[in-house]
Design a protein around this nucleic acid. Sequence first.
DNA 1: CTGAAAGCGCTTACAG
DNA 2: CTGAAAGCGCTTACAG
Lengths: 345, 345
Amino acid sequence: MDILQVAKRAGVSTATVSRVINGSSKVREETSERVRRVIAELNYVPNTSARNLRIGRSELFGLIVSDIKNPFFPDLIDHFEELAASQGIDVIFTHTNYDSHRLATCVRRLVERNVDGIAVMTSEVDEPAIELATRRRIPVVLLNQPLLKSKYGDVSVDYSRGYREAVEHLKQLGHRAIAYLAGPSDLSSVQRRQRAFQAAARKSGIQIAEEHFFAGNMRVESGREAMEKLLRTESRPTALVTANDVMAVGALQGAIAAGLRVPEDISIIGFDDLPIATMMHPELTTIHLSRHEIAAEAFSQLVHLLHKDGPAAPRRESTIRPRLIIRGSTAPPSSQFKRRHRTAG
Amino acid sequence: MDILQVAKRAGVSTATVSRVINGSSKVREETSERVRRVIAELNYVPNTSARNLRIGRSELFGLIVSDIKNPFFPDLIDHFEELAASQGIDVIFTHTNYDSHRLATCVRRLVERNVDGIAVMTSEVDEPAIELATRRRIPVVLLNQPLLKSKYGDVSVDYSRGYREAVEHLKQLGHRAIAYLAGPSDLSSVQRRQRAFQAAARKSGIQIAEEHFFAGNMRVESGREAMEKLLRTESRPTALVTANDVMAVGALQGAIAAGLRVPEDISIIGFDDLPIATMMHPELTTIHLSRHEIAAEAFSQLVHLLHKDGPAAPRRESTIRPRLIIRGSTAPPSSQFKRRHRTAG
DNA sequence: CTGAAAGCGCTTACAG
DNA sequence: CTGAAAGCGCTTACAG
């Protein structure tokens, strides 16, 4: 009964001490002052478990990602934690390793901790795993789950916007033959990116040849391999757009290994804008997907949902718009390439 | 009073329900079975705040790092969280942004949460910031703080081991003129790395010329710049060892930009073994510093300290030994370079 | 093997 | 403006 020690020493009741700690205004300045002095003297630190039990909240958010080693996430986690800290909320961080069974376990752990909200920032979500939170009326916000957005908060990414800027940029530079390097088609985020790219090309009036679509696995080697294949195509494209930065890095290396100059001989555009993009030489032109914005949006939705109640609380949804960052890996196609393309096309 | 609902429905007391949940053996299998069924039916989830308040522990560890965006940390966090989860412990994650005032705030937040242990994995630690935890008898484990290891757990890195392997590797390849690219000298971990390199060179009987020491800022550009300077030195070295991978990446790019081939014309060795090391072309030979081991050691020390008590509990200390990973950026010096070196030296 | 009851450290109507 | 007291949901000696 630690607050009691403070109370005794200050000659007040525990109620008053509690009021002072929680900034309740109805305490005389003199009393308050005295209590604060005693708190400092005794180095008193409130017991959050007791407080949480009493008030029924934990001032704790759960943050679930699939894989912290994916360089996409650190920035997101960092900012989410920062925002939470600024409101006196701590965050319990867990990861699923892309395993939906583990997702259910993570959710259960968080529910047991009585968290006030859960951000599930994994690209794939299966609903039963998060059901427990819903049943407990714990606000949940998801990432890019348009199918579920009627029941949960949702942060979604407008991939087409980014690709539109990318394609327009290339078009203005004079590129007409553009290749695309996709990821494994079983990931919904990958599919969404590819469709967005196709829509963007259509909109810009640029036709993408069948043979200019490549499939990778989101890792570096597949970028290198795709570049090798690309250089062997009939109608060699003058630019490559990829589904993520990591493959763009591989493509860049593949081009250099083949003796090409980037961007003079081939332009490359990545997606994500990972730290690695600026570590390359030339630095990568890429589509920036703001983890900062995702974190901010997820956090604010959680706070918003927390203050509504009832099961039918209208869920908020909001859209993150990636945007093109022009750096060193894009330039007008060299005449040599343009000529070759004209001949071939 | 949720456990009461379960108790009523199962026709037992809350004590019995509690025993079943906590696996106390003294419950008849029949009763236990019935209680478990009711728990499942009701989807009962225990309230951890109440439990923690009662038992005086939180089954929560705090993990503090300086900067999650530093690619060194994600792996560490990941594994720490994994270990904790396997023991039913959750982890509250916070970061200081290299600010020691924020460290104190982080520690206070964790103490309020009643965490059972704190891992402070920042490279610089000032003692007053963590004093609060000590006073509360909360186990604390630090990273590379030999001065404080009498009072806290400490995970320390034996930098010399890694550099010794690196220097020996280069020596065996035939290198005699080796350069070193250090970081800013006000960071203790940087100093420690540099001293370890010097000791390693001495031990291998390799003398490092004064002009072959370069100072960077741990970022890519400074690697490129250092490479440019290196190529202008009188007695051009045939190999470069750096204080971190990021600068090694810059050096690699600088060499390629200058028209050199790596490793034929110059060998490069990094430090850390970040994911980026294998994304390069050639892949970087580097000294692997295992975040996995650091996490495991920090976690196990915390658990160990937790089970001792009293202020004079003997603190454990243990050493992580980095090791050389030979990849593509090291090879014997080309004869052209050797010749030039002989003439110059 | 099981239950009644105290108590962990707070907060908050309620009363004054 | 302040205090006495109930109660948040558990766990655990203690008694049977």
